[in-house]
Nucleic acid binder design. Structure first.
Length: 562
RNA sequence: GGUCCCUUCGUCUAGCGGUCUAGGACACUGCCCUUUCACGGCGGCAACACGGGUUCGAGUCCCGUAGGGAUCACCA
């Protein structure tokens, strides 16, 4: 079924137009490799989407996926992606809490056309600065009878709610403290009551939501509450502000997480009461916790740590953070949050590619996409309805694959900040930078993420840790290991050119001389010189470690064993 | 509890009535390659929640049941 056919009741603020087999700037899709096999013939023209974070100080991975879909929709249609800040809840330290979010977007390469720092024709983009618009809307709603002033005390309402719940009935406010005329308002105010503004929701009929992902969702109006849209001091609440802004910004598609689906009827009511055309809704399934079905939450770290793959990722992150002196104290160092991945050296494209596949698929065969392909190939009609659980192992696999695909010089640049942070490389110091480049080249795909460079600390520092298990197996246990190592050490001391090729020749000559196979000495040599059970090519390793350290480490090992 | 949503391998998914003895990917695992560790190649394990319909034929359509989830604020 095409995107077209899936739309049963067109409800749109902008006309839907067929674009044909070309992208937003008119290039034929055939120029895009696999994209040519999936021409998405039907598109909206100029989709305007928005992502509306509240300034919390961090970017949740599920939020990023929602933002990604919004961003793609705007980009693929030549429309706009808008960032709006939902700070109606008292502006405590908005500036500080917003910065990490904007940084996250920048790191991910999801640019916004309108919003904080870039402005736009519909600003301001902070809800705390749009009070007049909301006040107008509230006044209109009051005037048209779609809302009313209500003087119930919170505890009075709470009692009613509890009573309804106990009797198993849906709570329906009987509007007993509703005040629709001045006399009543004055009476309640004289009693010292405070009046909020409530929606006067319909008590009969149905609300039909036409959702691009869920299809037709029907809700009885009677099951809806008379939601509060303004506090006693007149300040607006989220739903009112959201609807007013979506309309003011000309949002054509409201694409958000499924937990907003139950909120949609009241928003539809607000929009309709204000005479707004309805945007097209699409409610995405939420991202679920690893191995589970509950919504992924940043607060359940302890629980997720029981998942092997999640624990491995976290452990990797901690190891990198520790070696590179990153701060893991604050609670943003958490695989549920985007910061984590930036800090340990993930590629934004890999993260995005993985996230796109959470709840969406092209055909079940193709999974790896360039950013251009993501934009080209994504369609809402292929988004699943069921929650998708976050799989750290698969994410890591995507990252490893993408990282390995980069040329050595790029990987070196990405790794460099980590090497510098670890104190192994000095920026501008040619010798240490060259060493780093050598290690990165030799390490090849053993580097899954930039922070993995920490595994090769023995290439950079004098001190090195000896893996005891490997030491026992390769040095203590084999009968001739120590003897051979001692002989090889003397042999190597005569090797002045310590390039990989030259060292290889020296070691091979040694083996021939002793009538042994390379395999009989190489393991002991590796453990002695690196302390590790594995690593990249032995001779590349020796060349990077250098003659001086190679010899002294063999000496240390020999001393340790005797 | 009310309302709404969801249900194919451990996980992400393909599947739009016959081509499904259910395909791909990650994970796990066997073998090969190999100086180690990786990579790579070739295999393996593993799923249509259950019950009724509709139909010549159902993973695919309908209805129930069960299970899971979201949401029920003067938060966003």
């Amino acid at each position: 079924m095409s995107y077209w056919q899936n739309v049963r009741k067109p409800q749109r603020a902008c006309p839907r137009i067929r674009l044909g087999f070309e992208d937003s700037v008119g290039r034929p899709v055939q120029s895009l490799g696999i994209a040519s096999a999936f021409p998405q013939a039907v598109r909206y023209l100029m989709i305007r989407t928005r992502f509306a974070p509240s300034p919390t100080g961090y970017l949740h991975i599920g939020g990023v996926r929602t933002a990604l879909f919004n961003w793609i929709l705007a980009r693929q249609s030549g429309g706009q992606f808008i960032l709006r800040i939902d700070d109606t809840d008292a502006g405590r330290n908005v500036e500080a809490a917003l910065q990490p979010i904007l940084d996250g977007f920048r790191w991910l390469g999801m640019d916004w056309d309108e919003g904080p720092e870039v402005g736009g024709a519909h600003g301001p983009y902070f809800q705390s600065q749009r009070g007049e618009l909301y006040a107008d809307a509230i006044a209109k709603l009051l005037a048209s009878g779609h809302a009313y002033r209500d003087f119930a005390k919170p505890e009075e309402l709470q009692a009613l709610r509890e009573a309804a719940r106990e009797s198993g009935q849906a709570f329906v406010y009987d509007r007993q403290w509703m005040a629709e005329d001045d006399a009543t308002i004055e009476k309640y105010e004289a009693e010292g009551r405070e009046g909020v503004v409530r929606l006067k929701m319909p008590r009969e009929g149905q609300c039909v939501i036409n959702d691009l992902i869920r299809g037709e969702v029907v809700v009885e109006w009677a099951s809806e509450q008379d939601h509060v849209i303004a506090r006693a001091d007149g300040s607006p609440l989220y739903h009112l502000a959201s609807v007013v802004d979506d309309h003011a910004f000309g949002i054509t598609h409201v694409v958000r997480a499924a937990e907003h689906l139950p909120n949609t009827p009241r928003q539809v009511f607000i929009a309709q009461s204000l005479g707004y055309p309805l945007p097209t809704y699409a409610h995405l399934p939420y991202v679920a916790e690893p191995g589970g079905t509950a919504k992924l939450s940043k607060r359940k770290l302890d629980k997720y740590l029981k998942n092997r793959d999640f624990a491995n990722l976290m452990a990797r992150g901690k190891a990198i953070a520790e070696r590179c002196s990153l701060t893991t104290e604050d609670d943003t160092f958490n695989p549920v949050l985007v910061d984590f991945y930036r800090e340990i050296g993930f590629l934004p494209d890999a993260l995005l590619n993985y996230l796109m596949l959470l709840g969406w698929s092209l055909d079940g065969e193709h999974e790896k996409f360039t950013r251009e392909e993501m934009i080209k190939l994504f369609t809402l009609d292929r988004v699943n309805k069921a929650p998708a659980s976050f799989d750290p192992a698969k994410l890591t696999s995507f990252q490893a694959d993408a990282f390995a695909g980069l040329p050595d010089d790029q990987r070196t640049e990405l790794v460099k900040p980590f090497a510098i942070a670890a104190g192994w490389v000095e920026s501008g110091d040619a010798a240490s930078e060259q060493r780093l480049a050598d290690v990165v080249a030799a390490a090849g795909d053993r580097l899954k993420m930039a922070g993995d460079i920490i595994d090769f600390d023995y290439c950079f520092v004098d001190d090195y840790q000896i893996n005891d298990k490997a030491y026992q197996k390769r040095i203590v246990k084999p009968a001739k290991a120590v003897e051979l190592l001692a002989k090889l050490r003397d042999h190597l001391s005569a090797c002045d050119d310590f390039s990989a090729a030259a060292v290889e020749k020296f070691v091979n000559d040694f083996c021939e001389q002793e009538s042994i196979g390379l395999g009989e000495i190489i393991h002991a040599l590796r453990v002695a010189t690196t302390g590790a059970a594995g690593g990249f090519g032995m001779f590349d390793t020796l060349a990077v470690v250098g003659k001086e350290r190679t010899l002294s480490r063999i000496d240390q090992t020999l001393a340790k064993v005797s």
